[in-house]
Amino acid sequence: MAQATAQVESVSDPLDHEGQEHPIKLYLVVWGWLFVLSTFSYLVDYFQFEGYLRWSLILVFMMLKAGLIVAVFMHMAWERLALSYAILLPPLLVLVFVGIMVLESDYTLWLRTIFFGTS
């Protein structure tokens, strides 16, 4: 049976595994970068950066970290584009929703300020 299993393994399609065994160094480097980027994000808060500088730094570090995790840890960089596009493009539509809700909350804030005069 063990022989048969070994046989099966070698017969099974090499394409399925190809590319998903990457050098351990790659993972360690990404791990290191995630630590560095997280430290940077923490320092943004620690040094109390304010305004656009704060928000842009937070978003840049966030996207870099997310990109590293998806591309390397989740192996998306080595998948075929048919899968990558199917998974990565739909979340972009959330940005449309973000736009709608920014307008909506501005309007709500305006109404509250006008009619309740709290600020």
Partner: peptide, 13 residues
């Protein structure tokens, strides 16, 4: 996260 953004940016408090 969107609903969080909405309530945070629409509150006067």
């Amino acid at each position: 996260l969107l609903s969080y953004m909405t309530v945070r940016s629409s509150t006067t408090v």
